[in-house]
Design a protein around this nucleic acid. Structure first.
Lengths: 137, 137
DNA sequence: TTGAGGATTACGAAATTCGAAACTCGTCTT
DNA sequence: AAGACGAGTTTCGAATTTCGTAATCCTCAA
């Protein structure tokens, strides 16, 4: 992981469809080198996957979920991850145990998801933040 | 957003480098249609961007940042987004104002980022959660 | 100096993307 | 009912990108 790798990653984070040829021009090397590097980054697990960031709805939100003690947090996370409109589920340290990032049609839909979470046996509380704006690093 | 769009999206979420030709075969249509659809999805903002999910370090964390009143939160977010190791910066509603998702080499590096945040004039406090596990919806 | 191993570059072939024209199919108008 | 129209789809050749592989370059150690 040298600076060249980091430059390539930063280009791919912003647009993963940038051709190797263009990346090569921008970082001052050859297409083959960019290709080798990207292959190695995937191989090493630095690049977990090529994907698309979507916004199918109009509202994104973080729902911080507290679960009861003696609950299998991983199992609850799995169930939540299956819900439509859920982008990510993180198990986290701190006051709450699970953070759910959702992409919903509107605030009503967010509310529905919160309700759905609170209705789970294992869940003892939720705290929600609307995501007003997103930047990529 | 019909079922065909959703099928295409679900393929791209798993591997955004899947060629149009292959997507077309898998969903039973032509390359041109897949191309038109993807272009429209990007146009409409359903696909925000093509990107790579990375894990350059061993620790991911969320740093919740509170800024002073009368501070331009967007501007602070911009500055933070430029830091190495930062994946996302969200402006959020709720107790804190900004959530920073970072991907760091180790807990020391996370600590460094927290310090860096707290050293900003505008920042009045931070609260950090380690991300122990991530699932995709 | 020489050789080995790894990274980089070069280059032709294969695959993919792209632009644009042709086509399909339902709907509206007369 | 015929014709016109528009949105979406398909087709196809050209341009671009990716891919496989062989040659070259570098650096370090003996």
């Amino acid at each position: 992981m040298d600076d060249l790798d980091r430059e390539i990653l930063s280009i791919l984070r912003r647009d993963a469809r940038t051709p190797y040829t263009e990346i090569a021009d921008r970082v001052g090397t050859s297409e083959g080198t960019v290709r080798n590097r990207v292959e190695r980054l995937v191989e090493d697990g630095v690049i977990e996957r090529f994907t698309v960031a979507t916004r199918t709805g109009n509202v994104k939100a973080m729902i911080e979920v507290s679960v009861d003690v003696n609950v299998d947090t991983a199992e609850v996370s799995d169930r939540i991850a299956d819900w439509q409109q859920v982008d990510f589920v993180w198990q986290v340290s701190g006051e709450e145990d699970i953070v759910v990032v959702v992409d919903a049609a509107d605030t009503d839909a967010v509310n529905g998801l919160i309700t759905q979470a609170r209705e789970l046996e294992e869940v003892v509380g939720t705290k929600t933040r609307l995501i007003l704006n997103e930047r990529v690093g």
